[in-house]
Simulated assay, not measured.
Amino acid sequence: MTYFVPTGGLPAQTELTTDRAVFTEAYAVLPRGTMRDIVTSRLPHWEGTRLWVIARPLSGFAETFSWYVVEVAPGGGSSEPEPDPDAEAVLFVVGGVVSLTVGAVRHRVQAGGYAFLPPGTAWTLHNEAGQNATFHWIRKAYERVDGVAVPEAFVTHESDVPVRPMPGTDAWGTQRFVDPDDVRHDMHVNIVSFEPGGAIPFPETHVMEHGLYVLEGKAVYLLNKDWVEVQEGDFMWLRAFCPQACYAGGPGRFRYLLYKDVNRHPSLRLG
């Protein structure tokens, strides 16, 4: 498996300003070239750490989640990572190795490692290796339901999660890290894969919001009315009901990490 890891830096003054970045009423595309040193952030109680915030709730746009790409230097990390007791999270490591403690259990998580952390989980994360570690951190305010238990934490690796082909094709499949029928979960973070020539053959139009980070390869993606070229390291942010489709022309696989909100009544009250 390969995973794109942003390197930061800054373009030379001789480079062109024009790129593929776009923000519309229906979608946004943040190409990998937007993840530069000057747009990184720091967080309280995190040492030796910087991050790119590539999604956050915005009124009238994507409203349910935030998404960080986090880089932790050797010796860095946090013993107080999450300030919000209602926040659930998925961590997905794309570079280096992190030491993740969930409750009393310590995990050594390397590239391809995946962790689900329900709200109220006691966890810590540190980089005890000799090189930078990079991971995706997707956060959502968990929506509790009377009579429905909060799901438990787990840590796994994508190599332990099979690709489930979509009906009628072997060229498009999904690695589902939780059971789609488990209504305890109110978000899914999966990996979607296309072999060269694979496609989403109709414009999906649905209530779920999406964040998509391209882990590997390139493709053309239909976003609302526009066909947009994307490649590894690019991020797409799709508002609810934004039409979307995909064609992966190759030469290699096209894979992305996908967020969507699921299994809950839409709120009938705005704001």
Rank of each mutant, 00 (worst) to 15 (best):
Pro74Met: 05
Val97Leu: 11
Arg56Cys: 11
Thr156Asp: 03
Val155Asp: 05
Val70Ile: 12
Ser159Pro: 05
His136Leu: 10
Trp67Gly: 13
Glu152Ala: 15
Ala55Leu: 08
Tyr68Gln: 11
Pro74Cys: 01
Ala87Asn: 02
Pro83Leu: 05
Pro119Asn: 02
Ala55Pro: 00
His126Lys: 06
Glu158Val: 14
Val105Cys: 09
Asp86Ala: 08
Val155Ile: 08
Tyr68Trp: 13
Trp52Gln: 02
Trp123His: 15
Phe61Trp: 12
Phe135Ala: 00
Arg144Lys: 12
Val90Met: 03
Glu128Ile: 03
Phe116Gln: 06
Arg144Pro: 00
Val98Tyr: 05
Pro57Val: 04
Val148Pro: 00
Thr156Cys: 07
Pro83Asn: 07
Gly113Asn: 01
Ser78Met: 08
Arg108Ser: 10
Gln131Cys: 15
Glu88Leu: 01
Phe92Thr: 11
His107Lys: 03
His157Asp: 07
Ala89His: 13
Val53Ile: 09
Ala153Leu: 03
Ser159Val: 09
Ser159Ala: 13
Arg50Tyr: 13
Gly60Val: 06
Ala115Tyr: 04
Thr174Lys: 13
Glu82Ile: 06
Arg106Cys: 09
Ser79Lys: 15
Glu82Ala: 03
Val161Phe: 02
Thr101Ile: 08
Ala89Trp: 07
Tyr68Ile: 11
Val163Leu: 14
Glu88Ala: 09
Val94Met: 07
Ala149Pro: 04
Gly120Lys: 02
Gly112Pro: 01
Ala111Lys: 11
Gly173Ile: 00
Pro83Trp: 03
Gly113His: 04
Val148Leu: 02
Gln110Trp: 14
Thr174Glu: 04
Gly103Lys: 04
Glu128Ala: 10
Arg108Lys: 10
Arg42Lys: 14
Asp84His: 05
Gly77Asn: 01
Trp67Val: 12
Val69Phe: 07
Gly76Asn: 10
Gly76Arg: 07
Val53Thr: 11
Gly60Met: 07
Ala62Leu: 15
Arg108Phe: 03
Ala73Thr: 12
Phe61Gly: 10
Ala171Cys: 11
Gly173Leu: 03
Thr169Lys: 02
Thr169Gly: 00
Leu58Phe: 14
